[in-house]
Design a protein around this nucleic acid. Structure first.
Ligand SMILES: [Mn+2]
Ligand SMILES: [Mn+2]
Ligand SMILES: [Zn+2]
Ligand SMILES: [Zn+2]
Lengths: 161, 161
DNA sequence: TTGATAATGAAAATCATTTTCAATATAATA
DNA sequence: TATTATATTGAAAATGATTTTCATTATCAA
């Protein structure tokens, strides 16, 4: 009775990759689906505890890694020492967006301007790169790095070495 | 006699940000300039030792961080547990490129196809985003994630949990 | 059911990166 | 140039996010 080809796409992805749909995994995924933040493993763990007080941090880590490996979740390093995770949305979907990253305070801004043109270029690039490098592309990221409004006007010297 | 406004751009960047040009920093930079790999701090350290046997790993970390902060170096997290660094080249320059990242074996491919069109879109996007979010953009990254040639044909189940 | 395998959670271990701190180098200026 | 203030360095110790181990539990196939 497995592989009924129903449920959300990430469940199918799990099945196809040969993994089971478990309570902890479902919980972790639901947390990612219900936020627009960029959560760390610890962040997810804290939220998970509220629903399932017996879940382990280890399992959260494992779930996030697994989701990242099968491509349903994106893992980011914004430079603040801990990985952050975000649901990976289809480039054609509403939720797809890119990032502005402040090099100083590490704050993140999601944006989705020019998505139409961006998707055009990406599709084209994807197609060419897939062929040229025999690479099966699953998703992409675009990050702009710079200084946020506050940090532009903050003290010049930002670091002590 | 400072700020003679000569030397490579990253030296000026250092000065402008209020930092000194030191031997260790010069060495770290020269290592980054003379490779096309994506080196970890440890990688840089090993190469640096060959030139200056008294340099410390700590200093390498500090130099890489500093360069990253002032925008002359890019720091990446390709998912293999250690940060990797690469010289940050001007989008209009020859060396500017983007990345294909294998989600399974973490191998990286640099590519620079469609750079013309890409740069067009980026400039346009940059301009709009700068205004809209009062963000001073210094550089950007584009990453495509997927499976490299080998990994597409490798075993299905890639992880044990 | 039963047996085989996958997934979980607690505790311990790892290890890349950061912090501390005393020593050294550099720049400003008297 | 000599003096003083400040920036940078390297070794050692600490940190802390992530991973590993391992015994237990849940789930699947037959
Ligand atoms: Mn986002
Ligand atoms: Mn590269
Ligand atoms: Zn900022
Ligand atoms: Zn691969």
């Amino acid at each position: 009775m497995r592989n009924r080809m129903c449920g959300p796409w990430w469940e199918n992805r799990l099945n196809d990759a040969g993994f089971r749909l478990t309570n902890p995994r479902e919980l972790v995924m639901s947390i990612l689906r219900n936020t627009d933040k960029h959560l760390s493993a610890e962040d997810v763990y804290v939220k998970a505890l509220a629903v399932n007080p017996s879940i382990g941090l280890t399992t959260v880590y494992r779930s996030l890694d697994l989701f990242t490996q099968i491509g349903v979740v994106q893992r980011f390093d914004f430079g603040d020492g801990k990985a952050r995770y975000e649901l990976n949305r289809n480039p054609l979907s509403k939720g797809h967006h890119h990032h502005l990253v402040c090099m100083r305070c590490k704050s993140i801004i999601d944006y989705n301007d020019f998505m139409q043109e961006e998707v055009e270029l990406m599709k084209k690039t994807e197609k060419a790169l897939s062929k040229k490098h025999h690479f099966k592309i699953m998703h992409h990221t675009i990050h702009f790095y710079g200084l946020c409004n506050e940090c532009q006007h903050a003290e010049q010297k930002m670091i002590d070495y």
